[in-house]
């Protein structure tokens, strides 16, 4: 198993407030890793350190290292914009641009100077197919993305992320605003996508983590309490705090 992301002694501060304490973790390539834990435990903060999204928040500070393919993403040589292309992100609420389906997908490529129509058309087709949206929208790709249902919009946002050819995709509670059928489609999609990408998902649904992830990390008060194969975390966790959380005794 190949380590894609290596986290070493990571601390993160909002002002003087330490939100993440001494995190060490190996995230494996082409696996789905889930972060679970009660609200405010640091799981989303940690997710955002992986593509330096936290830098948009003032007065924050990072200590320690995050290596992706062996390269420290906080080194001065790393361009955060290029990093965010390699490490894509999908959010809780679908956030398509108020543009056509087509324009949503090619937006990033055009920004990066790709103008060739054939290439753009090809990307739109393949990404829509890879998120299993093609059949549903093929007759309206030049219509507004806002006409799509919530579940379709979320799959479009995943297509938009994939179009940039990332290595890693971060999902921050991607189904919490969706109905059960749309949720199931996204979960199936993630299981497909892990063949090509390394996936990290923050979820409040323990059943979702259990269903789709290969590895699970349990966070509490900014610390990783336990990180192991998902099967072990949910069938026989080592730490009593993990057991108490997943069995609903607190949290």
């Amino acid at each position: 198993m190949e380590t894609k992301i290596k986290v070493e002694n990571l601390n993160f501060y909002y002002g003087n407030n330490r939100a993440l304490s001494n995190i060490n973790m190996d995230i494996y390539k082409n696996k789905i890793t889930a972060f679970i834990g009660p609200s405010g435990c640091g799981k989303s903060t940690f997710l955002r350190t992986i593509n330096r999204m936290n830098e948009f928040i003032e007065n924050t500070r990072v200590e320690g290292k995050i290596l992706i393919d062996g390269e420290d993403i906080y080194s001065k040589k790393v361009d955060p914009v290029e990093l965010r292309r390699r490490v894509g992100m999908v959010f809780q609420r679908p956030n398509p641009f108020p543009k056509t389906i087509y324009e949503n997908i090619v937006y990033g490529l055009k920004k990066n100077g790709v103008k060739n129509k054939e290439i753009l058309n090809e990307v739109v087709d393949t990404t829509l197919k890879s998120v299993a949206l093609y059949e549903e929208v093929k007759d309206k790709i030049h219509k507004s993305a806002l006409e799509l249902s919530g579940g379709q919009q979320q799959r479009l946002c995943i297509a938009r992320t994939i179009a940039m050819q990332p290595d890693v995709i971060l999902f921050d509670e991607p189904t919490s605003a969706l109905d059960p059928i749309s949720t199931m489609k996204i979960e199936e999609l993630l299981l497909e996508l892990k063949n090509d990408y390394t996936i990290i998902i923050v979820t409040h649904s323990m059943q979702q983590a259990a269903r789709i992830s290969d590895y699970t990390a349990f966070f509490l008060n900014g610390e990783v309490i336990e990180f192991d194969e998902t099967n072990k975390i949910f069938s026989n966790p080592r730490d009593k705090r993990t057991e108490d959380y997943i069995t609903g005794r607190f949290g």
């Binding site: 059943q207 069938s235 026989n236 057991e243 997943i246 069995t247």
Partner: peptide, 9 residues
């Protein structure tokens, strides 16, 4: 109830 860990056992 989708019991887990010891509850499941």
């Amino acid at each position: 109830q989708q019991p887990l860990a010891k509850d499941l056992r």
